[in-house]
Structure formats: structure tokens, C-alpha cells
């Protein structure tokens, strides 16, 4: 028996909206601690990982660990039948569920849907705990804007960290450009820029993955970029009170 109720169903919709550009079919894992999802994009280049803690739900029960294979596209079709202010409950009775039930509740309306599940033999990847040598926290809409703008100039974006801040740069056929974001300790947390740099990094990434993933900026006003030289970076959007949505992407190696 599994039941998870989102107080803010709009949050679940934003999560699916953010990952639908990157992953097609995913295994939703549910257990006593909460719900998690880990899936690679279709080209196996990037990895998306979602973690939602049971404490963040209005109601949460999961007697036995469950794996529910679902198509993100079909999940979205079901979620499109809900309102952004609805409370959304996910539920299944069986131990080996073949469908996942959804209840959308608003003040004057309650809807019930069932999504057919699929069996996906997707292997999980072990993400090692890593001490990152550069960790940058900055406004998510600023990061989204920089990636979109510089992505117009070149498909690869350079990121260079220092104790003063983080520099994004591009060198393309049409020309080049750079954007340096300085640290600031403004009292408004959503505008803060913090850099913990034990070792500076200078890495280059395929910015199209950032642009696909940055739909997740609707989930959080801040984004955390964790990097180490020649290691995959993590883009993390903290989901208030619930958990986080992460994208892992390896840097491009200059040939």
C-alpha cells in the first residue's frame, strides 16, 4: 500500500515539467523514506535525480518498497487534468502495481485518474559521494538567463570559479563573451551569490543540457552548482521542505 499526498500539487507538476525535456521513461522508487527517481537522458550523457522526503508530504505511507515504471509523457497528460492549486495524491494498492492512481482535489472538485505502469529494466547508477572543490550558490533565474544568452553564441559554455565569484564564458564562431557574477551577501537570500572555492575550476559544458534542465528554476529561487576539475558537475534545485532535483553532466574534454 503506497500513498503520497502533495499539499502543493503544482510543485509535482513543476518537477515533471522540468524533467520531461530530458528523460522519457523513468522508474519512480517509493519506500519508507520517500520517493526517488533517477534516469539518464536519451543519449545517456546526463543524469537526472529526484529525491522527495516523506516528511514533505501532507500524507505519506509506503509499507513496502515499490518501483513504478512510467512514461513521463503519459504522466504529463494525466497531470494536465489537474489545477496548479490542487492537492495531488499518488496511490497504489498492490505490491506489484500495474497502475498508479491519482486524485486531484480542489475546493469544489475531485478527480480520479489511473496511469498504466510499465516494467522498465533500467539499471541505476551509483553516484559517489563527492567533496566538490567549487560550490556556487546563485539566483536560479540569473543562471537560467546566462545559459540561455551565452548558449546563443556557442554550444559550449565555460565556467571558471574563484573566491571572488564565478565567470561564464563562450568562444564561438561569431565571437566571444563572458559574464562574471560577483559574490554578494545581500540580506535577500534569493539574490545571494556565494562561492566556496577550495580549488578553482575551469570547465566547459554542453549548454543545451543546462537550458533543458533550467525549467527546474521554477522550483527554487536559488541554484547550487557543485564542481571539481574533470568531474561531472551537479546542478541542484532545492525543493523547499521536500528534497531536491539534480542534474549531473560531465564536462567536455578539449580534443
Amino acid at each position: 500500500m503506497f500513498e503520497a499526498k502533495f499539499e502543493d500539487g503544482g510543485l509535482f507538476k513543476k518537477i515533471v515539467e522540468a524533467i520531461k525535456e530530458l528523460v522519457k521513461n523513468v522508474n519512480l522508487e517509493a519506500n519508507g523514506t520517500g520517493i526517488s527517481l533517477q534516469a539518464m537522458d536519451t543519449s545517456h550523457v546526463a543524469l537526472v535525480a529526484l529525491q522527495l522526503n516523506e516528511k514533505g508530504f501532507k500524507k505519506y505511507r509506503c509499507e513496502k518498497s515499490l518501483t513504478m515504471g512510467l512514461s513521463i509523457e503519459n504522466l504529463q497528460k494525466i497531470l494536465k487534468c489537474s489545477g496548479n492549486d490542487d492537492q495531488i495524491t499518488l496511490r497504489t494498492q498492490d505490491e506489484e502495481p500495474t497502475t498508479l492512481s491519482f486524485t486531484f482535489e480542489s475546493k469544489n472538485r475531485i478527480s480520479e485518474f489511473q496511469l498504466n505502469l510499465m516494467s522498465l529494466d533500467q539499471e541505476q547508477l551509483g553516484v559517489p559521494d563527492t567533496e566538490y572543490s567549487s560550490v556556487v550558490r546563485m539566483p536560479s533565474n540569473e543562471f537560467t538567463k546566462i545559459c540561455r544568452e551565452l548558449g546563443n553564441i556557442n554550444e559550449a559554455i565555460g565556467i571558471e570559479t574563484s573566491k571572488e565569484g564565478i565567470k561564464f564564458y563562450v568562444k564561438g564562431d561569431i565571437g566571444e563573451g563572458q559574464v562574471s557574477v560577483k559574490i554578494n551577501d545581500t540580506e535577500k537570500p534569493e539574490e545571494r551569490v556565494e562561492c566556496e572555492v577550495d580549488e578553482p575550476v575551469n570547465l566547459s559544458f554542453a549548454v543545451r543540457y543546462f537550458n533543458l534542465f533550467n525549467k527546474a528554476s521554477a522550483l527554487s529561487s536559488q541554484v547550487i552548482l557543485s564542481m571539481s576539475q574533470d568531474q561531472p558537475l551537479v546542478i541542484e534545485y532545492i525543493i523547499e521542505e521536500m528534497g531536491s532535483l539534480k542534474l549531473y553532466l560531465a564536462p567536455k574534454i578539449n580534443d
Binding site: L125, I253, N254
Partner: peptide, 14 residues
Amino acid sequence: QGIQNPITMFFKKT
């Protein structure tokens, strides 16, 4: 524009 390695090169299948 450089070589893009897949994430599976860094994270092993469990």
C-alpha cells in the same frame, strides 16, 4: 568543440 563523455563513464551501474 571538444568531446562529451557520457555520465556512465563516471558513475558505475549498481
